[in-house]
Design a protein around this nucleic acid. Structure first.
Lengths: 199, 199, 199, 199
DNA sequence: TATGAATGAGCGTTCATTCAT
DNA sequence: TATGAATGAACGCTCATTCAT
């Protein structure tokens, strides 16, 4: 055990530097916002050299991916802790904080969209991973809740994500801003999860 | 009279410059792609000064908006010429060329997402207009086709757009590239437009 | 005349900016030295944007080439104004200021060596040009002075340059610093221009 | 005794590491060239840490000095094995391989110029040593060959070196590349060693 | 001696956009 | 309208060298 600790003494230092950089970045984001983050400021607060920054993160976006991913993960943690929702309203309420965050800054939303996928397997970032997690959570909810049984919980989950994105995207579009994100999202989910078919 | 005389040739010249710039841009896009377009190259091919470019287009994105909007309009023209679709498969086939274009370049997709709405009412651009047109076309189709009558054709149309975007977005995410865009889109549309509810 | 002035109104502005940058650089060099010059400082003194600097000069060295070349040219101007030297001592005296300058900073000497030639015709810089001028001046002197008539003045000139470089180079080499540049240069020139052959 | 026992294997290991580093460097130089050599690559091929590199060599140039010095020494070995030259042509032929090497890369030439002397007496490097050796060889040749007796063999030797450098330097200057290095060197040497003075 | 993360100053780049003529 | 030089705020990079373990 102790030996293992001693074999990688650098790792501790590396981890510390990395943590310093990330917390410096978070500090800036808390004080201002994501868009206002400058690499120069991060390293100056973290008391680190520029070279060190780029040794830890491929570029500024890579750091953003980590921080945003972490935030989303925190929302998902809370979400997971909730009792399995029974109604669409429950789902909406559960997702509200995450939706608010994603819609908080156009810059953040754009980044999430851009990083929701990866060009290559080895480029899967934090944000991309959270999307997978989101699906998993939704799937388990939906299999318990039994909204629809004509389609798989997975497909239902993907639909929910599509509508979530759509609702947020339309918020950034002034043409449609008469309606709140949640109202629109609610509309979509009702139509998606509770279709009423007349025979 | 005289005034008219002096104005006309000027307008002609203006239009010519504008056309030059647009065709220069198209040339670059054909040779390379949308992302590779640089204002510098456009004006060099159009043999124009940089200032002239910005006298004709508010910014680079405005030019992009015009060119992409024009392309989308052409697809919608073809789409409109088709007989009103009766099946989901008809809808998918009708939209395929447009979907292919939107998925051709991540840059184009991002731009379309960003410009699907306009930041301000007075800035409704070409792309935003085509989205409206798309909705209108879909609405008329859906009111004739009678897929679902529990929700408005407008909502149905919005859902289709959400799923179209989702299908394309997941294409840019290698994690899900086992499935083609159209297969996924088809899956979504069936679930969206033909929900089968057991009682 | 006036028309010509009006056709290129930009050129004046361009020239002014360029002159600003160069004089800012000279200011720094005068205050400190060549090696101490920082692009950042130049633009800050010239009140110019960084982009402007690199629009005018390919890189920092290009600016150095111009300034050093200008300085060498000034020395050559003085040199040309002198009466044609009759003795080796005259030549040494004439060249002394230039030699002193070239030996003033290792950085300068290295730069001169590096830029004395050009990789391509279109890259002939100021320094490279001064070398040609130096040869021309020396040639004319040597054809009048008649030190040696077994070899062309051009060859004599090239030899003088070779020895000048050698004398300076050895100055930067502590192993040989017992002797002054000029003493060594003098030794060389006597052996080169006044060989005494016993028969 | 015991101490010796413990020291020897360590020394062996040290020498092995050093040899590894040098051979890794040579590998890179053979594959690419001197300029392309990066410490990073050397240690990666030698499977060594960066710190180890600098424990063995004061700096990167120290390694270069060793490798280039070794190469020059090999040329001088061959040169020394030759019979004492009687003609200028003999000298030229003898030096040709060395001249070719020095002219092979601008980077190498610059480094040789810079290191032909040493900044401090205690830093006399390999290259500087080879220059001394070169002079010694030339001196012995020249005292036997009796080209000129108005100046010392040492001065003659220095002149030859000056002209060798000049010939190579002009090769790096495209303006004069009509003539080969050796042709120019030959011209110089004839004028230097065999001046014909009319009385 | 070996390790390798951290350093760090400065350079060059990017390129859409502005503005004085 | 047309011109094109100037802007400018980051970003990313370079890479030999240092230093604590």
């Amino acid at each position: 055990m102790q030996k293992k600790h001693m074999t990688k003494p650098q790792q501790k230092r590396t981890l510390k530097t990395r943590a310093n950089l990330i917390s410096a970045a978070k500090h800036i984001i808390d004080k201002d916002n994501f868009e206002a983050l400058r690499v120069e400021d991060v390293i100056s607060i973290a008391r680190t050299a520029k070279g060190t920054f780029f040794a830890h993160f491929k570029d500024k976006d890579a750091l953003m991916d980590i921080i945003i991913g972490e935030k989303i993960d925190a929302y998902l943690d809370n979400l997971e802790a909730l009792p399995s929702p029974k109604t669409i309203s429950d789902i909406l309420n559960a997702f509200e904080p995450l939706v608010q965050f994603m819609a908080s800054e156009r810059y953040v939303f754009d980044l999430i969209i851009r990083y929701s996928g990866a060009a290559q397997i080895d480029q899967i970032g934090h944000i991309a991973t959270t999307f997978g997690r989101q699906t998993t959570i939704l799937e388990s909810w939906l299999s318990e809740a039994n909204f629809r049984n004509d389609i798989s919980p997975e497909l239902q989950a993907e639909g929910i994500q599509a509508f979530m994105i759509q609702a947020i995207a339309l918020k950034f579009c002034e043409l449609h801003n008469s309606q709140s994100i949640n109202d629109r999202f609610s509309l979509y989910l009702n139509a998606w999860l509770k279709p009423i078919i007349a025979h």
